[in-house]
Amino acid sequence: MDLTTAPSSATATASAAPLRVAVLLASNREGRFAPVVSDWFLSRTAGHPGIETDLVDLAELDLPIALSHRPGAEARAQLAAVSPRLAAADAFVVITPEYNHSYPAPLKNLIDWHHAEWQAKPVAFVSYGGVSGGLRAVEHLRQVFAELHTAGIRETVSFHNAGALFDEEGRHKDPSGCDAAAEALLDQLVWWGRALRDAKAVRPYGI
């Protein structure tokens, strides 16, 4: 008896499809530096084979505070603009600054409005800030996303004293180090994203 099993056509198709990555831009402050970082990161993903990105800019959302997992009509209407995008994603990258040793409140609000949308998907982090480069925000986020059954990517990209690193046109002045870090992050994200997507095609994730 032959115990080997060929992959189903559905699984093979899923494996070949581009990885859908939702890039969450966490800052919503006026005069924010966030677009410079997101533009840089998206220019890196543009050259990476097998990735499709969807930029979710929290400054464009107006979600009510997540006081309950049973939203009213107004909240449902606002969530309809973002929830399907999170559900469709195979993986996530969070681009975050550091506010008072942690991450922005609108990001926590977005996270708390959702549950199944995060589960069994990888999440990676790109951070920026002053001396710490936003890494304290990332460490807090790792705990939050672990509770939601995500797979945290070890590799990160962090920009210390970020404002001094880019020129007036948003180009990094010395990109070799951050380019290498982004490549390592994306390679891990793609591996985990494909592995988890293929696994869920065979057996739905359940807790």
Rank of each mutant, 00 (worst) to 15 (best):
P97R: 07
M1A: 11
S176C: 00
R203C: 15
W113I: 12
L165Q: 13
A199H: 10
A17D: 13
A201G: 10
H149Q: 14
G31H: 09
R203D: 15
D39I: 01
A81H: 11
V138I: 15
L25D: 10
E74M: 07
T5A: 09
K108M: 14
F125H: 08
W118A: 08
K173H: 00
L141C: 00
F145L: 05
A17N: 07
A17S: 12
A26C: 06
E98K: 14
P35C: 05
A88Y: 06
P97D: 03
T5V: 13
R32V: 01
R136W: 11
A116Y: 14
Q188E: 11
P35R: 11
G152H: 05
V56F: 03
A184E: 10
S15R: 10
N100W: 08
L19V: 05
P49M: 02
T150I: 07
A91K: 09
D39A: 15
L165F: 00
S158E: 04
F41Q: 06
Q119M: 05
A195N: 11
L165E: 13
L189Y: 02
A199S: 13
E117V: 06
Q78S: 12
A91H: 14
L196V: 12
S9Y: 00
R70A: 15
V123C: 00
A124V: 11
Q78Y: 02
V157Y: 01
F125P: 05
V131P: 03
S68F: 05
G31R: 09
A88H: 09
L63D: 13
A81G: 14
E60H: 11
F166G: 05
W192P: 01
R70V: 13
W118S: 09
H140I: 03
S38Q: 05
R85H: 03
F33P: 06
S27G: 09
D62C: 04
I207N: 13
D167Y: 15
D57G: 04
S15C: 08
V126R: 05
T11A: 13
A17H: 10
A87G: 00
S9A: 13
A14Q: 10
K200D: 12
E60P: 02
P49G: 02
P104V: 03
T150C: 12
A73C: 02
K200M: 06
A22F: 04
D112P: 13
N161A: 14
F159K: 08
C178N: 02
N100D: 03
K108S: 15
V82Q: 01
L55C: 13
N28T: 15
A164M: 06
L67C: 02
H48Y: 05
A46C: 03
S15P: 00
S43P: 00
E169V: 07
G152Q: 08
R85P: 08
A146K: 07
A88Q: 14
K121I: 10
